Simulated assay, not measured.
Amino acid sequence: MFKIAVLISGGGTNLQSIIDNIENGYLENCAIEMIISDREGAYGLERGKKSGIKTYCVDRKKHKGNLSEEILKIVDGKVDLIVLAGYLSILKGDIIKKFKNKIINIHPSLIPAFCGNDMYGIKVHERALEYGVKVSGCTVHFVDEGTDTGSIIIQKTVPVYVEDTPEELQKRVLVQEHKALSEAIKLISQGKISIK
């Protein structure tokens, strides 16, 4: 069984898409071993409890300096892949080394556009619209020491319309995020991704 830890900060719709794809057999031989949130009350934790998955909260306010170390203690030796699904804290230090090429993130733009420090959530879509891009999308990439700098696994595109609001663009991109994240997990779990 290919074991996954999913890290979240909010509502957990990307998490739900993974749960659904395990249940419907798309992600065969995969199991979510645990869900970890960096804030109390994140709805994604409720989603996990409803599905009978172990949940943990490692609050970013309580663990400012050692958040990554606390998470490493929970996941070390227990999972094959860490999936950042709308996780807003930055992982650093030993967890990046120990889980080299075993941590993936979903970002709501076509990296290298609109990524890096302070580029998350609705801000990404606001910037895309300000810039006037005709195409946006999402990127699943490996996590390394930088912010949104790891090797790209999958990108999905969506059209951008003149009349779009940031919220409308966000919803359209989210549909593709749900597909891309499970697709990347499937490829990794089947050993079909290698970094050269």
Rank of each mutant, 00 (worst) to 15 (best):
Gln155Pro: 05
Gly132Asn: 03
Met119Tyr: 15
Thr139Asn: 12
Val140Cys: 09
Ile122Leu: 15
Ile111Met: 00
Phe99Thr: 03
Phe142Glu: 05
Asn117Leu: 14
Gly132Tyr: 02
His125Tyr: 05
His141Pro: 13
His107Gly: 05
Ala113Gly: 08
Glu126Trp: 06
Val158Gly: 09
Asn105Tyr: 09
Lys156Thr: 13
Thr147Gln: 14
Gly121Lys: 10
Met119Ile: 09
Val158Lys: 09
Lys123Met: 13
Val158Ile: 10
Lys134Thr: 08
Gly137Ile: 06
Ser136Pro: 01
Ile153Arg: 09
Lys100Gly: 09
Val133Ala: 06
Gly132Leu: 04
Lys102Ser: 13
Arg127Leu: 12
Leu129Ser: 03
Met119Leu: 09
Ile104Ser: 00
Asp144Arg: 07
Gly132Thr: 04
Val143Arg: 01
Val135Glu: 04
Ile122Val: 15
Val124Ile: 13
Val158Asn: 06
Val140Ala: 08
Val135Asn: 03
Ile106Arg: 03
Asp118Glu: 13
Ala128His: 03
Gly150Ile: 00
Thr157His: 10
Pro112Ala: 15
Val124Ala: 02
Leu110Glu: 00
Leu110Thr: 02
Ile153Asn: 07
Ser109Lys: 01
Phe99Ala: 01
Ala128Ser: 04
Asn117Gly: 13
Lys134Arg: 14
Ile104Leu: 00
Ile104Phe: 00
Ser109Val: 03
Gly116Ser: 13
Thr149Trp: 10
Thr149Ile: 14
Ile103Thr: 10
Gln155Ser: 07
Val135Ala: 03
Cys138Met: 11
Ile152Pro: 11
Gly116Lys: 13
Leu129Thr: 03
Phe142Arg: 05
Leu110Arg: 01
Asp148Ser: 10
Gly116Gln: 13
Glu126Pro: 07
Val124Cys: 03
Ile103Ala: 03
Leu129Lys: 05
Ile122Ser: 09
Pro108His: 09
Thr149Tyr: 10
Asn117His: 15
Cys138Glu: 06
His125Thr: 11
Phe142Asn: 04
Val158Ser: 11
Thr147Leu: 14
Pro108Glu: 10
Glu145Leu: 05
Lys156Leu: 15
Glu145His: 08
Val124Leu: 06
Asp144Glu: 13
Phe99Glu: 01
Tyr131Leu: 04
Val124His: 01
Ile103Cys: 07
Cys138His: 07
Thr147Val: 15
Ala128Cys: 10
Ile152Trp: 12
Val140Asn: 01
Gly150Glu: 02
Tyr120Ile: 12
Phe99Pro: 05
Cys115Arg: 06
Val133Leu: 07
Gly116Cys: 10
Val133Tyr: 02
Ser109Trp: 00
His125Pro: 06
Thr149Gly: 08
Ile106Gly: 05
Ala113Thr: 03
Lys102Asn: 14
Lys100Gln: 14
Asn117Tyr: 15
Ile104Ala: 01
Thr139Ala: 12
Pro108Gln: 11
Cys138Gly: 07
Phe142His: 06
Pro112Asp: 12
Gly116His: 13
Asp144Cys: 10
Cys138Thr: 09
His107Glu: 08
Ile104Cys: 00
Ala128Gln: 01
